[in-house]
Design a protein around this nucleic acid. Sequence first.
DNA 1: ACCTGAACACCGTTCAAGT
DNA 2: ACCTGAACACCGTTCAAGT
Lengths: 195, 195
Amino acid sequence: MASSGSPPRRTRDDVAEMALQLLDEHGLPDLTMRHLATALGVQPSALYWHFPNKQALLAAVSERILAPVHEVVVTDLPMPEAVLVVGGRMHESLLAYRDASELVSSSLALGLVDSPVRPKLLIAARTQGVPDALSDVAAEAVMHFVVGYTFHEQQRLVADALGLLESDEKISHEADFVKALTMIAEGLAASIARV
Amino acid sequence: MASSGSPPRRTRDDVAEMALQLLDEHGLPDLTMRHLATALGVQPSALYWHFPNKQALLAAVSERILAPVHEVVVTDLPMPEAVLVVGGRMHESLLAYRDASELVSSSLALGLVDSPVRPKLLIAARTQGVPDALSDVAAEAVMHFVVGYTFHEQQRLVADALGLLESDEKISHEADFVKALTMIAEGLAASIARV
DNA sequence: ACCTGAACACCGTTCAAGT
DNA sequence: ACCTGAACACCGTTCAAGT
């Protein structure tokens, strides 16, 4: 049998998965097409058979990072709580990999990836008779806040690791995140009450 | 008289100002140290006399973009209105230059530039007896939402200019921005009412 | 004080050609 | 279908040296 035949080939998913691992291990600045190719045992040009360009590859990585948010179940949850659950899950998902929020921020802005927050809040809103327009507005506020906050937070984490933060900057800001998200949720509740 | 003497020299401000113009005319991807040097009639290495690295230069450009936010006056303004005024001014400032929100987003995240929202809301809060902690939380929510939203919005503007948007994506989202910002302001009002 | 010249160590992307 | 090899057109940064 020809068991030691042709060299192993990579799927699109293999490439995206390896990119995610490189991101987590070495950070976004070192996630180059050349490093990725080397990690896959392939020439840089081979990557362009799987993806048209680097942005498309990064969008695929963003999708993987955001996957857990799509799994969250918020049906029959009151709207303000749904905001906390979805926003919280997105926060967790972004913190799970190094530099994830920076990467996702640009993929979202470029429109190469859809907000996972919007469909979730839409479901929760509809089961409670809240207009789509209102949940859309809330989804925008939540998504941009969570991504921006986590981006900022994640940079503080690396600054801390490098030991260049003042001691009063080193306290955990997890509580602040929840407070701000709660404030947005309360704003939504107030908007609903007025309808 | 030696009126046609030594060649013109550049100040740090000259360099930052030219960078801002290049950003606005050609966008962030084309704002390279080499292009900037050429525009200034200088060698790329000359820029490193004025700034230690590109990030520091970009931070200086971010400061220029955000300058109008520091000029806004919110003393004696009720807190929810202060949020709308400061957030609105930040939105305007970011829209004034091409790719400004993307640039400012990363400068803020890296901690190379301070949030202009925080000190403004702090003043408004204190004149009304609102605790600093509360205005800080609001400042975080406002800043991250405004920067993220405007980043997304500014990318839609270039996509529209390139003619690659569906017609239902082309409607102005200015009203949505105000609605979301208002929702955050109402969340703050609700938090204040509970104190 | 401000800048040149030259180099170093990289990038993303294309494309003809191979298997 | 998946990849190689080689090239193209760039990057940011350093540093000795000039004026």
